[in-house]
């Protein structure tokens, strides 16, 4: 792993939706095993048209039939194909849990399940389309790897690594992701968290583009108040980087998690589990507090569900205060 950090707020050259289409197109060109599958939510418009023209049999739109898409993908993988399935997060986990479990993980398949529009980024599609539970559900399936890349560069590498690793992957993909956290030359490993900066007072652990962006702004807000916050990009939710969590506990003595999903079963839970079995410290969880989604624009939804930089900074101060009560003078 080698990390070259971008300046905070560096605009990306493309949206993560464009990254996904470009990468899958490139994979289809360079790796004949790769099949792009779509349950009629527009992957065909994201892939380069010349690739679809060149390989019409390797882009498969199954229609509105997610369970069937996943089953077919498993069958393809049993004959050494590498299928990427694409639909929205709300369908990618809820509608196919049994297929992902049985035909997939239990049966030893290798399918890259991409869920688009995680959490509140479903915006005006509203509560029916807001998946707050998808990563938690998939995390409970044995041998399922769960990732949520933070930017285009990391996303590209995650897709490539997942393509060549065994087993089932659930890949949360924030299509509108539009800033970079990492510069070219950075390399990542699935299962290894990225430390964007060290701190002495508190460590913020974030998952996904939206939360990492807000967390980065929170670090700046805290710095204005003389609080030194560390920041970790936990783009692999499972297997979680236990070492990074234990190190953060030792380094700063309290933590904040920030996730664009229900805190039940998600990142806050995963970090708590690691602390409970190793070293515990005060933890404040920023995320959806066991609620359904609703319609709105992204900025309003972030405020509505308390996912903003200000919310994360406030959580950091609560965590520090709890730490100080436990260990006066710390």
């Amino acid at each position: 792993m080698k990390i070259n950090l971008a300046q905070p707020g560096t605009p990306a050259e493309e949206s993560m939706a464009d990254t996904l289409g470009r990468c899958l197109g490139a994979f289809m060109e360079e790796d004949l095993r790769v099949i792009a599958m779509d349950a009629d939510v527009g992957l065909g418009k994201m892939l380069p048209p010349e690739i679809i023209n060149k390989y019409p049999n390797r882009y498969i739109n199954v229609g509105i039939a997610e369970a069937n898409m996943l089953g077919i993908a498993c069958g393809l993988s049993f004959k050494d194909k590498v299928p990427f399935t694409y639909t929205f997060c709300c369908f990618a986990a809820r509608k196919v849990l049994d297929q992902a479990f049985l035909s997939g993980a239990f049966g030893g398949a290798h399918v890259l399940m991409i869920g688009a529009m995680p959490g509140v980024t479903a915006t005006i599609n509203g509560g029916s389309h807001m998946a707050f539970e998808d990563a938690a559900v998939m995390r409970a399936v044995p041998e399922m790897t769960v990732v949520e890349p933070s930017d285009m560069l990391q996303g590209e590498q995650v897709l490539r690594m997942a393509k060549d690793l065994p087993g089932m992957f659930y890949i949360r993909w924030e299509r509108k992701g539009d800033i970079r956290f990492y510069e070219n030359g950075s390399t990542f490993e699935i299962g290894k968290a990225v430390k964007l900066c060290g701190g002495s007072d508190v460590t913020i652990i974030a998952q996904g583009h939206l939360c990492l962006k807000e967390a980065q702004a929170a670090v700046a807000l805290l710095a204005l108040e003389g609080i030194r916050a560390g920041l970790i990009d936990m783009f692999t939710l499972k297997p979680i980087d236990r070492e990074a969590i234990v190190d953060a506990v030792r380094e700063t003595g309290c933590l904040v998690t920030a996730e664009n999903q229900n805190v039940l079963g998600g990142l806050g839970s995963a970090v708590s589990e690691v602390m409970a079995e190793n070293e515990a410290a005060p933890l404040e969880m920023v995320g959806i507090r066991d609620a359904f989604g609703e319609v709105g624009d992204l900025e309003s939804l972030k405020k509505r569900y308390k996912l903003t930089a200000q919310d994360i900074a406030a959580a950091a101060k609560r965590a520090i205060s709890r730490k100080q009560k436990r260990r006066p003078g710390a």
Binding site: G71, I72, C74, G75, L76, F78, K79, D98, L102
Partner: peptide
């Protein structure tokens, strides 16, 4: 679930 998997196998062939 099996027929979907069988379809995938046949597609690969």
């Amino acid at each position: 679930q099996g027929l979907s998997v069988a379809v995938g196998l046949a597609m690969a062939d």
